[in-house]
Structure formats: C-alpha cells, structure tokens
C-alpha cells in the first residue's frame, strides 16, 4: 500500500533537509490532496520520490500549468471592540488578498508498484517577471514536451530544461494564450443575429445594414 501523504511528507523532510513542504487539501470527492514543494529543493524531492524503494514513482503521467489570478477572499472574523464604552463582540468582514502566481502540477504514478497518484505542485513567485521554476525533465523524461507546452501557453520558464522552445504556437508569437487575462485577436466571426457584446464587437468590424421590414 502506498503511504499517506503525511507520511511521505515526513520522509521527504528526513531525506531532503531544508525542503519546505505543504499539503494542499482537495475538497472534491476525488480525494487527491497535493504536495506543494519549495522550488529550490524540487529536483531533490523529485529524485527521492523516483528512487525511494517504497514509493518508486517512476512515471510522471501528467504535467500541466495553472494560472491563478489575484484573489480577494472575504472572511468573517469576530472582533472585540469598544462600542459606546461597552466591549462587544462584532462580526467584521476582512478582505484577504492572495497574490497571483503560476503553478505547475505533476501527477506521479508508479509503474513498478502500480500505485498513485501523488500530486506535486510548484509555484512561481508572481506571474509577471519571476516565472522561473526548476525543470523536472532530468528526472522524468515524459515532462519534456509537457513542460515545453506549459512554457508556450503559460510562460513558465523551466530552468534546466534541455530544449525549451515554443511547441504549439509559432516562434514569433509573443503572448501566452492559456493565461486567464489573454485577449485573443479580434477576428471573431459575426453571428447571424448578434446581440449584446458580440453586436458591439461586430459593429466595429463589419458593415451594418438595416433589415428590410418583413411584410406579411
């Protein structure tokens, strides 16, 4: 049986000193919690997971990117305040800002022991200039094209990747189309009966004619 994520976390901390790990819970019935790994130790952690005799996660099935925008989470907090000389317990909403970042997710399985998945997550510092992550291609070759794809579509730069070029879009392409704030080129075809936003868009590009009145 595969050990639980807590046990794995403890064992990694033992074997890879200094690695900062965090278990990210997963609210869905799938029950696939994931392990957030600090970037400096990611390669060592990955090597441990691959070579450890009990885990032997020799097969990285899926590698993908996610774009998390800046989020404002409203939380209700109970605060004690002096109101008109009396101490009262009040509920206040506090806005918490989570910073924006890009994320790479790896799903690991073991072909020799036939268990999995263990989910690894790596996070960049932000989504504008510090978008570097260590590449896990040296550990699992299967990440080669997938990391190239993440670079192409999300703009995460994988340090240590042997051949980091655009894979799906052409080389002169400048944008990262899978990011949430990407705006596609405005060549959207008209609809036969445009309305609302599409009508506004259509008006900018296409000639408008009044329909002749239909006579009964």
């Amino acid at each position: 049986m595969i050990p639980t994520l807590e046990q794995i976390k403890a064992r990694i901390e033992q074997s890879v000193p200094g690695a900062r790990l965090e278990i990210i819970p997963n609210g869905s019935p799938a029950n696939q919690p994931s392990l957030l790994v600090s970037n400096e130790h990611a390669v060592d952690v990955a090597k441990f997971l691959r070579d450890d005799s009990e885990l032997r996660l020799d097969y990285a099935s899926n590698a993908t990117g996610i774009d998390w925008l800046e989020k404002v989470v409203k939380e209700k907090v109970k605060v004690k305040r002096m109101v008109e000389g009396v101490e009262k317990e009040l509920e206040e909403t506090v806005e918490k800002k989570t910073p924006a970042y890009l994320e790479a997710v790896y799903h690991l399985y073991s072909m020799s022991l036939k268990h999995g998945p263990i989910v690894l997550r790596l996070r960049t510092e932000n989504r504008t200039d510090k978008t570097h992550l260590p590449s896990l291609t040296p550990i699992w070759r299967s990440c080669e094209f997938q990391e190239r794809e993440i670079f192409d579509l999300y703009g995460i730069i994988f340090d240590g990747h042997p051949d980091l070029r655009r894979i799906l879009m052409w080389d002169a392409f400048k944008d990262f189309p899978m990011r949430r704030d990407y705006v596609a080129p405005d060549d959207y075809e008209y609809e036969p009966t445009p309305h609302d936003a599409v009508l506004e868009k259509a008006k900018c590009h296409f000639p408008i004619v009044e329909t002749p009145e239909v006579k009964p």
Partner: peptide, 24 residues
C-alpha cells in the same frame, strides 16, 4: 457545479493513458 476541488482521472485508451485533469 461541482464543489471546489480538483480531480485527475484516467482510462486506458486505445493509444495509451488518456487523462483528464479538472479544477473546479
């Protein structure tokens, strides 16, 4: 509208492991 969370599912497709990864 699934609950907040994520899932990775896979099947043995004729060509190999076909996986889907969804975040809700």
């Amino acid at each position: 509208r699934p609950k907040v969370g994520e899932a990775y599912g896979r099947i043995e497709g004729p060509k190999g492991e076909l996986g889907f990864y969804l975040i809700s």
